[in-house]
Design a protein around this nucleic acid. Sequence first.
DNA 1: TCGTAGATTGGGAGCGCTCCCAGTATTAAT
DNA 2: ATTAATACTGGGAGCGCTCCCAATCTACGA
Lengths: 341, 341
Amino acid sequence: MADLTLEDIAKQAGVSRSTVSRVVNNHPNVRGKVRQRVLQVIEDTGFHPNAAARTLASQRSWTIGLLLPHSVSFFFTDPYYPHLTKGIAQACNQYNYTLALFLVGTKEDEEKIFPRVSRKGLLDGVIVQAGHHGDQEIIGHLVDAAMPLVVAGRPFRSDNVSYVDIDNVNAAASAVSHLVRLGYQRIGTITGPANSTVGLDRKEGYVKTLKERGRSVDDSLIAEGDFTEAGGYYAMQKLLPARPDAVFAASDIMAIGAMRAAREAGLNIPDDVAFVGFDDLPIATLSNIQLTTIRQPVIQFGVKAVELLIDQIETGNTTPRRVILDTELVIRESCGASRRK
Amino acid sequence: MADLTLEDIAKQAGVSRSTVSRVVNNHPNVRGKVRQRVLQVIEDTGFHPNAAARTLASQRSWTIGLLLPHSVSFFFTDPYYPHLTKGIAQACNQYNYTLALFLVGTKEDEEKIFPRVSRKGLLDGVIVQAGHHGDQEIIGHLVDAAMPLVVAGRPFRSDNVSYVDIDNVNAAASAVSHLVRLGYQRIGTITGPANSTVGLDRKEGYVKTLKERGRSVDDSLIAEGDFTEAGGYYAMQKLLPARPDAVFAASDIMAIGAMRAAREAGLNIPDDVAFVGFDDLPIATLSNIQLTTIRQPVIQFGVKAVELLIDQIETGNTTPRRVILDTELVIRESCGASRRK
DNA sequence: TCGTAGATTGGGAGCGCTCCCAGTATTAAT
DNA sequence: ATTAATACTGGGAGCGCTCCCAATCTACGA
């Protein structure tokens, strides 16, 4: 199982390098008999074309990068990202692409990773998880390098890039509407960071809904979180004095933190305070009180991003496209729906 | 910012391709002045050598693969793996390697991924997360292909491969000893799968400790889980009839499931049943009762794996090596230590 | 049977880099 | 100033593949 080359296979099959290349790449114009013979030799020898040589000659690496900027350094504290990664990996397998993962941990990493991501001969395209102000730089970088690019999440400047997202405003609105419908009077919210589009959009959905329902928007019922459990916990503590009877948290993990704070304050869920989260990741059903939440199709999200990217790579069409996926309100216990109707 | 080549830079700097190559690769034997000049041109033009060409010529890709076999399909249900991935990614950044992620979801994926992982010109080496019976095949594959390899976790047949692990037997023993020390009489355990080395080893630590302390080992106090929250939940339900007063769960996530089951059964934690988990991931402190657990250095684990691998790649020394990292018992509330002493 | 369009096939010319070797410049010692 | 080391530098020969084009076959109709 030494290092075989096309030429070796060609010799063994009694054909030329070119013919072997054709059968490997499934080109037409190879006689059936010849194709069989070559295929046989390839199978017998366990030959696989050298990836680097192929990339150099064809200018296609068949690998895409997934870039997780510094802004998602709480990356592995919110299970959302691993799930997204899984969806992307899955799609890569399906389309026979290799996935390169770039996790930006520190500022120094950033400098090392920037050039590597845009370097020729490594990646055919990249998916970047974005939506924070800080992400604009890397996006600009990639656009300048004419690297096929799809953004996961809506970036702040979205005019010239393709992205996949959900309708965060309306999804949040449906969560808050649900709470209004259940008769809660003092509905609070724990938002995502104000320097992120997700954070802003979900908050907008909250504000919009209250206004539409003729409610006033009370700042003491709004606290900013950072998509961590601890962030949710502290935000809830800030909300507590305002005595909310329901809280919409912009992520499940923050909802869990918030519920912890509520319980510690001696409050009963959902009787004293109801909660609705966002994401519907497995953790939503993991706590002793099942979380009502907005389900977003995370895996689909990843798959779509890959599909958009591959289309861009293979057709060369870089017209910005956007895909907005549907969400769904999943009613469980934490909103108190069962006992209120 | 078109596609520049060494030759282009050479021309602009008035030197030869070879000289540019030398400065790019930091070789000695380039006059200081010349080096400066070339560096300047490189900076001005934003040149980065083509990765594929470099790989083809040098037979080194500077990328390593992380392979997560099918056996870890609950991959993103146990936060352990994302953390491991993070450690690995971090080390890759540090050593200037690119990380390729291979997530085996389905059996079909496996067939697509096998050749890709061992194909020449793509990876310099691979880290495979292993420890299940099913993982032997891919390991054999990789060994046959003479691919530098490090296993994360102890594989079943560990004689001819390098791996990183913790001392699961003793770590588990220290958890159980702690429970014994606190005076619990009916200590149960929720093990990992019996077809995994981790599952087996941690159970062995449990059994060993009880025997050393002159306790009998009661099968009705042992239930097998699968490292998921649901698995822990069901395992606990099986344990309940045996009336354990303490339970050692082989992972935090299973401990959380188990505690949910206990609470549903009306039991108080830790007064009626105490719990010790394993991992000390962020979730350990996320529930309303803080989990006593065994801390394992997950990030370190990833870093070590990368270091072993890179050493193997760069020195060519494939003598199997093993690194066993230390663990630590972290005492919090769930074991009831505070109220029992 | 012959000619020809169309199907196959082979080989050359790179892709952009590294590595080796031979040549040239530089330095230090005489 | 001369010579022998020593320090640099340039260019050729690939790495293993794809792609193009020219050459060879094949099959079919006249």
